Simulated assay, not measured.
Amino acid sequence: MHADTAVPAMETPRPAVPLRSRLAVIAIAAATFAMVTVESLPVGLLTSIGGGLGVSPGLAGLTVTLPGLLASVSAVVLPVLIRRTDRRLVLLVLLAVMLVATLASGLAPNFAVLLTARFFVGIAIGGFWALAASVAVRLVPEQHIPRATALAFGGATAANVLGAPAATLVGGLTDWRIAFLVVAGLGAFVAAALYALLPQLPATDPIRPRTLAAQLRVPAVRMAVTATFLLVGGHWAAFTFVSPILQQMSGLDERLIGPAQLGFGAAGIAGTFLAGSAAARDPRRVLLGTGVLLTAALALFTVAGQTPVGGVALLLVWGLAFGAVPVGVQTWIFRAAPEAAEAATALNTALFNLAIAVGALAGGLVVDGAGTAGALWTGAALGAVATLAVWAGGRSLTR
């Protein structure tokens, strides 16, 4: 063998992610899960909360509306206000606010105290959710950013489809106050983990108001956030009152509401995975299919959901459809604004939470005036409008 014999170049191995960084990303996902679970926590417990505090189910729905409204504002305002504040400190403070407010919710002696606590929950949720993904990707090498992003958003998705149903099951087996205290305990554990695992995270490029406003001038981003608002708003107009819907319309025993919602969550997880690969190819088609399926499930509930079996079956279809919404919209946004993904994501987070607030409020007004069937028709109508809007937008908006 000659000394000058060429040696094949070896590929540079992908840099490994330190164990502490991996655990920190997992802790962020768990914190997002806890935050979003707290936001939707009252949904399956409205009957119990209303009965325990002496208010109607429609009025009890304000415990979902108020934090959703505050979260939508916090998601765009807080990232601007904190400017160059260390992100680790901001996340820990927001977790502490959520923890204290959730404890206060579980111990609230009356509805006014509960609503005040939920006000602070909303501020914490919006700010944390808007920052979580951008913090997670700073903890790993560039090659691992997609996985870290998916994990951070996965916490929110899992909370939407599993967190609230699990809390409903706990509340149904014990008491609605216990459900709040259990989630507060989860928040305390997650806060301790983040304190131990997160390094200092000085701000890089602070978000400015003009950066957010500029995203609304991108047609695809504008259509994506519109789809988010309509689909999520339609979902929450009905889902806020899923407990009385299943009990009064389908005749499901109150003790089975928690297991039924866990089934909804499992279907939602399936919808998320099924939509993932499809959205990478064509997010518009995923949202069209989701809109049709969601609209059909809600509209058929008043006809085919009059029995426990029919109600649970439609609830599973409903969960399958809604589970596809976040991944479909987020994929659309990343494709539409790759150079401003953080700002576009903050905007979408704001619209997502605003939709929860507006949808829950609209549903509450309709339920108090026209009963639970009205909430289902309201959700179906918003889902139909979203589907028509995405269809009318055309294929050019997928880029």
Results as ranks from 00 to 15, higher is better:
154 G>S: 05
154 G>D: 08
155 G>K: 10
155 G>A: 08
155 G>E: 13
157 T>K: 08
160 N>D: 03
163 G>N: 06
164 A>V: 10
167 A>W: 07
167 A>D: 01
168 T>H: 08
169 L>P: 00
171 G>W: 07
171 G>M: 09
173 L>F: 15
174 T>D: 04
178 I>N: 01
179 A>Q: 05
180 F>V: 07
181 L>Y: 08
182 V>E: 03
182 V>R: 12
184 A>P: 05
184 A>H: 04
185 G>K: 11
186 L>V: 15
187 G>K: 06
188 A>E: 02
189 F>G: 02
189 F>C: 09
190 V>D: 02
193 A>V: 05
195 Y>L: 12
196 A>D: 02
196 A>Y: 11
202 P>V: 05
202 P>S: 06
204 T>D: 15
210 R>H: 12
211 T>P: 00
212 L>W: 14
212 L>K: 05
213 A>V: 13
214 A>Q: 13
215 Q>Y: 04
215 Q>D: 10
216 L>I: 06
220 A>K: 06
224 A>L: 14
225 V>P: 03
225 V>R: 11
225 V>L: 12
227 A>I: 06
228 T>C: 10
228 T>A: 10
228 T>G: 03
232 V>N: 03
233 G>C: 09
233 G>I: 10
233 G>R: 10
234 G>D: 06
238 A>D: 02
239 F>G: 08
241 F>Y: 15
241 F>N: 00
242 V>C: 11
243 S>M: 05
244 P>K: 11
245 I>D: 03
249 M>R: 15
249 M>C: 04
249 M>G: 06
250 S>V: 05
251 G>I: 06
252 L>I: 14
252 L>R: 09
253 D>P: 03
258 G>N: 02
260 A>R: 03
260 A>P: 02
267 A>V: 09
268 G>K: 04
268 G>L: 11
269 I>V: 15
269 I>K: 04
269 I>R: 04
269 I>F: 12
269 I>M: 10
272 T>A: 15
273 F>M: 14
277 S>K: 12
277 S>G: 13
277 S>W: 14
277 S>A: 12
279 A>S: 15
279 A>R: 13
279 A>V: 09
283 P>L: 07
283 P>S: 10
283 P>M: 09
